[in-house]
Simulated assay, not measured.
Amino acid sequence: MGFSVNTNTGAMAALQSLTETNKGLSQTQSRINTGLSVSSTKDDSASFTIAQTLRGDLGGLKSVSSSLSRAKSVVDVATAGTEQISDIVNEMKAKAYQAADDGIDSASRDAINEDFKALRDQITTIVDSSEFNGTNLLKASGGTVTALQSLKDSDGSGTWDPDSLSVANQGLDLGGSVVTVSASGEIDTQANAQAMIDTLETTQENLNTSLSTLGAASRKIDAQSEFTSKLSDVIEGGIGNLVDADLAKESAKLQALQVKQQLGVQALGIANQAPQTITSLFR
Rank of each mutant, 00 (worst) to 15 (best):
D246V: 04
R219S: 15
E114R: 09
Q255P: 00
I32F: 06
V5P: 00
I187R: 01
T202R: 08
E20L: 12
E226F: 00
A248D: 15
T53F: 12
E226L: 05
A271N: 02
D173S: 09
E250I: 02
L151G: 10
A11H: 03
I112P: 07
Q262K: 15
G56W: 11
K253E: 15
V259Q: 14
S141W: 11
Q276K: 14
D105F: 02
L165F: 12
S166M: 10
G60Y: 13
D163M: 07
V64P: 05
E226M: 01
G269C: 03
V167R: 08
Q84S: 15
T203R: 02
A96G: 08
T199Q: 10
L15I: 02
G56N: 13
I187F: 04
D233N: 13
Q149L: 15
A111K: 06
S177A: 11
S150D: 04
D76G: 14
T82G: 06
N113I: 05
V181G: 03
S47G: 09
N192Y: 03
L214G: 08
A168S: 15
E91C: 00
W160G: 03
F3K: 13
D101R: 03
M12Q: 10
L36A: 11
S150Q: 04
T180A: 13
V234Y: 08
W160N: 09
L36P: 15
A111E: 11
A223P: 14
A195V: 02
N22I: 05
L36Y: 10
T7P: 08
V179A: 06
L200T: 03
S130W: 04
G24P: 00
F227P: 11
T7W: 08
N169E: 07
I239G: 05
A51K: 09
R109P: 02
S229R: 11
D101A: 01
A13F: 07
L165M: 14
S73R: 11
T124R: 12
Y97K: 09
E236K: 10
A78K: 07
I278V: 06
T82V: 12
F48R: 10
Q170S: 11
I235A: 02
D155I: 01
T7R: 15
S30T: 15
K260E: 14
F227W: 04
I221F: 11
A248E: 15
S229Q: 14
N241C: 01
M1E: 08
L58G: 02
E226D: 15
V265H: 02
G81V: 06
A99M: 04
K249C: 00
L207S: 01
L148H: 05
V38Y: 01
G185I: 03
L268H: 02
V234H: 10
A252I: 08
T53P: 00
T228R: 07
N90P: 07
L172P: 04
P275S: 10
S63L: 13
S154D: 13
D102A: 03
A46Y: 12
T189I: 12
Q261H: 13
A217G: 05
A193T: 03
